[in-house]
Computed example of a mutant assay.
Amino acid sequence: MHLKSEHKIIFIIAVFYTIALTAGSLMRPIHIIDDPMSNIDKLLHAGAYFGLTALWIFWVLFKRSSKTKTTSSKKLWQIVIGICFMAVLYGVLMEVLQGTLTSYRTPDTWDILANTAGSVLALIACLVYVNKSKMLKSNF
């Protein structure tokens, strides 16, 4: 598949994922487990924001690699870290909106922390992936 079409597909998936995450964050919650000591909710938050951040980072990486003009490594990582920061802000915004737009959800600081952890883990995973792929390409 051509890189331009791949980055368009990733963009479409990222947009739909973001819309779905917004809808899921603002709709009436479904009780998965009634045990208040269960951390499954926090794992779901971390996983959701891992996916959000990773999709947008890979969209930028594919977009940059499909252009003929190269972007400096420093500038590219500033963009990628900016995406992680925006995902964290988005998570904070969703928690604030839960408290202001809905009567059935409440903002939770632990959810913000779980969202942030997921975004940071996605950033680290992308850094490792890109560094490993560069190392693999240089060996062959």
Rank of each mutant, 00 (worst) to 15 (best):
I79E: 07
M27S: 15
S73H: 06
A125L: 10
I79F: 02
K134L: 09
G118P: 08
H45W: 08
S133C: 09
T116L: 03
Y129F: 15
L97F: 12
T70R: 12
S72D: 12
M86L: 12
L113N: 03
S65P: 04
I57L: 08
T102W: 06
T70C: 09
R28Q: 07
T102V: 07
L44C: 08
M86D: 00
A23D: 04
Y129L: 04
L121T: 07
S38N: 14
S66V: 09
M94I: 11
L121P: 00
W59C: 02
V88Y: 01
F50Q: 00
L97V: 14
P29A: 04
A122G: 04
G91F: 05
T102Q: 07
L101T: 10
K75H: 15
S72G: 10
D111I: 03
Y129G: 05
W77R: 10
T100L: 06
W59S: 05
N115W: 05
L43E: 02
L93V: 14
S66F: 01
N131H: 09
Q98K: 08
L43N: 06
T100V: 13
D41N: 09
M27K: 11
A117E: 12
T106I: 15
L43F: 13
V60P: 00
L76R: 03
N131I: 00
L113A: 11
V92G: 01
V96C: 15
S133Y: 04
A114T: 07
C126R: 01
A23R: 08
T22E: 01
I57H: 00
I32L: 14
I81S: 12
V120A: 08
I124A: 11
R28G: 02
T116P: 00
Q98I: 10
A48M: 06
T100C: 03
N115A: 11
S103E: 10
L121N: 02
A125F: 03
T100S: 12
W56L: 04
H31C: 14
L76E: 13
A20T: 04
K134V: 06
T53E: 01
L52H: 02
G47F: 10
A87I: 07
F58C: 11
L52T: 04
V88T: 00
A117V: 11
R64V: 15
N115M: 09
S119K: 02
G82L: 13
V80I: 15
S65K: 13
Y49Q: 09
I83M: 07
V80W: 01
W59D: 03
L121W: 08
G82I: 10
A117L: 10
G91W: 04
S133I: 12
G99I: 08
W77F: 11
A114Y: 02
V120P: 00
L97E: 10
Q78P: 07
W56S: 05
K42Q: 08
I30Q: 04
S73T: 08
A20V: 05
A122N: 05
S65C: 06
H31Y: 06
L93K: 08
T109S: 14
V130A: 04
S65Q: 14
S72A: 11
L61F: 07
P107V: 07
A48K: 00
S73G: 13
V60L: 06
W110P: 00
S66A: 15
Y90S: 01
L26A: 12
